[in-house]
Write a protein that binds this DNA or RNA. Sequence first.
DNA 1: CTGTTAGCGCATTCAT
DNA 2: ATGAATGCGCTAACAG
Lengths: 363, 363
Amino acid sequence: MSVTLKDVAHAARVSISTASRALTGTGLTSERTQQRLTRIARELGYRPNPIARGLKTGQSRLVALLVHNLTNASFQVMAEVVQARLKALGYQMLLCIGGDDPKQESDTLTTLVDHRIDGLIVVPTGKNGPQLKALAKDVPIVCLVRRDDATDLETVLADDPQGAYLGTRHLIELGHRRIGLIVGRQDTTSGRERLSGYVRALREADIAKDDTLIHAGHFEPETGATGARKLLDLSRPPSAIFVANHEATLGVLRVTSERNIAIPDDLSLLCYEDMPWFEWHRPAISIVDNGARDLANLAVDRLLQRMDAKGNGNDGVREYRVGARLIKRDSCRQIDPASKPKPSIPKSKSSAAKSSAVKPAKV
Amino acid sequence: MSVTLKDVAHAARVSISTASRALTGTGLTSERTQQRLTRIARELGYRPNPIARGLKTGQSRLVALLVHNLTNASFQVMAEVVQARLKALGYQMLLCIGGDDPKQESDTLTTLVDHRIDGLIVVPTGKNGPQLKALAKDVPIVCLVRRDDATDLETVLADDPQGAYLGTRHLIELGHRRIGLIVGRQDTTSGRERLSGYVRALREADIAKDDTLIHAGHFEPETGATGARKLLDLSRPPSAIFVANHEATLGVLRVTSERNIAIPDDLSLLCYEDMPWFEWHRPAISIVDNGARDLANLAVDRLLQRMDAKGNGNDGVREYRVGARLIKRDSCRQIDPASKPKPSIPKSKSSAAKSSAVKPAKV
DNA sequence: CTGTTAGCGCATTCAT
DNA sequence: ATGAATGCGCTAACAG
């Protein structure tokens, strides 16, 4: 069917191994035969067979990306970035969707390794630590967005503590003191860290943390609906809601829409992780940007280095953070203009808002 | 590193070929050894090496899906559906993003074939017909969403003529007579067909087609912005706009937002292809649903059959259509309540609105 | 610098 | 029903 190395060698009247050497550019052939072979190969339309090569070398030129879904805009961006970067390097991306389900994740992981993937970028569920750890011996792995605490895998995380802090402080600076928080499951890295950032901002502003204002739940629209109702039904409802659970955003909007709550007049709304339509929504929704593009790029960088290093020495850095950024649009308003921001709120540090600030951080 | 067939055979004290036969379930082994080998293989944690198998069989258990991007909600759905279906059958999905760029498409196609993919579902740019045609000799291919006119490949299409017709008729029934259309490039299947559906509905209602009301352009938000401005700047602007170019929707919304045009009070808006947030937008956006899920499922069905058939006989059907469906929400309003819908407008045929109506259609 | 040889792990033909 | 032998296409020791 297709032309093989043998055909090329035959046509060039050299041995098959000379052909191999010439075409893989090992530099172990004379300049002349090198060029001659390259030409002949091109003329014949020779394309190396990655399967055969893989059987010999144990590599596949396949790199897998395992994410929870493609509905989340961050995952979309990551998939596009990873695919583009890898393709440029001659790798193909195997995109897998795990649905944040440990069972699926586990199954997928094994078949991926079966396929002898050369590398893996995974958003772990956190429930397959042991397996992940075991696989890491065979293939370079970097975790993305979430950490799997049962492993010591290299991990690229958003700076969620900082992002949630920035967002909350923004609301405080606008005069809000009762700020509802809808946040993700507390058994996930981002869920915990965003809560902690929120708490820190509150503390700095001397605002007592009120647990009735905090709603943690699964990464689903329904969580947002439930949370929003709970918060709005409070005897003293919040003047602002910080939706730090991206998936929950739609649910929150449904409730405010149902109840005819005007944003930002009746309620300020700040969300987490950008989506294209946030900007076009009326009012445009202010957000904390988690830097999905930077996250993906960094993950690829780290993976490539591991793939090159071939298990040599890692430099000891196990965790990387990508800066978050506050993007003010029109869904948050100033209230209580009489009272100025508390003096206890420190002024913005210039570095805090730079999304390009990618700093390795040993944790 | 990993346990091979040889190891299993050795442990079971049989030849390697017996082990192979037993484990692949060819039925050429005794029931007893069959079970014994299966057990031993499991105990040893044996996993067949797809690379080695592939070298022998010429198959890879890899199926590729080539789409333009992951921003388009339809492509997201398709990617998720295809991945899920394939995984259930033991295939891995290779997701490629071509950016609707012929060069990228061409490159991607060749590397995919290099990797000996077992099948391909592609949303063609339409500019690589010859290549696609050539590849089709080696690997089963089905086109999705768009047809490549230079080939006679099996193609799964949305019923865009019908969808655009339904949408336009809906607006007409609401009393609109000047209906703007923002539609895709006319060198694409969907672009042409949606325009034709619009024209047909107009004709049936005895409304003269007005070319100043039609704006065709690239699948980008910018097209929507340009088109909307053009339409709204008309001396007699339309009372409704049908955005049949999905990507253009955001651009249209930006313009209506900028100009403070109330929807549906000042302008009715009907869009094409659903997105999660359309439903939560205020007002909720009425749409024509192209049935992305059905499209993907049908494409997988077709591909699988081709992969099984192994180039035997195809049944002669080259083109399949998946029904479109009108979903009324809140972005279109009745105008001119005095004048009832023209008698010339035929009543809805029940079959027309069933998205599950998947009917093969020889074209 | 080049040719010869030997597998990578598996499926399969040919014997038995 | 099973074993021995062959080769898929390629790379890499090992010789010259």
